[in-house]
Amino acid sequence: MNQKKAMLIDITQCIGCNACQDGCKVENKLATGEEKRLSPTAYTALSEHDGVFVRHMCQHCEVPTCVSVCPVAAFTKTAEGPVLYDANKCIGCRYCMQACPFRAPRYEWASTKPRVQKCIFCAPRLAKGLQPACAEACPTGATKFGIRSELLEEAAGRIEAEPDKYVARIYGSDTVGGTSILYITHVPFEKLGFDTRLDKFPMPLLTNNAMSKIPNVVTVGSVLLAGIWWITNRRAEVQQYEASQKQNGHSQNEDK
């Protein structure tokens, strides 16, 4: 049951009907009406690039940046795949929004008690053994839900079967350490607004690298500072002593 789930989005099959967004809005009880961009009321949105449609949403990273940066651990990565957010913990620092490599988290700016909103991979449905609402709503099979390892194989198979049609890359297979949303396309990814500069290593490693030096700074630093204090203090003591000796000498001379 706890196998890692994923969704394969075949951009060649998407007709831009927006059924995924409609299905999502109904399932998650969000304000209805078509939206062209992600927002607190649109967990997924389609963008058009010369007649080619790209689905935007939280990618549910294997090693999520948001989970790593949140100071109060409001984000969690579940075993099945979904990355979930707890508004009750959130302090609203918006570091998740600043750091997310896919710009998925959106904020309820208009609210005085704002929440970060993003796709939840229909975690309640997954728990019941159902597929996400968007995958169920997709009429062409452009969004396909399944087990991550199997979908990776299927994506590789589709690319292999039609190498002239597909770009030889599965976006998400290893981007920032791998994501739960996988894309294949016939148009180069960079022309569709995908950030192809993102590396294979997970983003949290960048800060973990710096954070891991903290214990060293603390131990070496405290010993160093205490040592400098000790030496300079001793020097001050010696100077004081020598000065007092000199003074004593002077006063003795004066006595004579």
Partner: peptide
């Protein structure tokens, strides 16, 4: 919720 970092920890976070 400004006090949350005192009790809800995430030592991986720079923040």
């Amino acid at each position: 919720n400004f006090w949350h970092p005192l009790v809800m920890w995430n030592p991986h976070s720079v923040m």
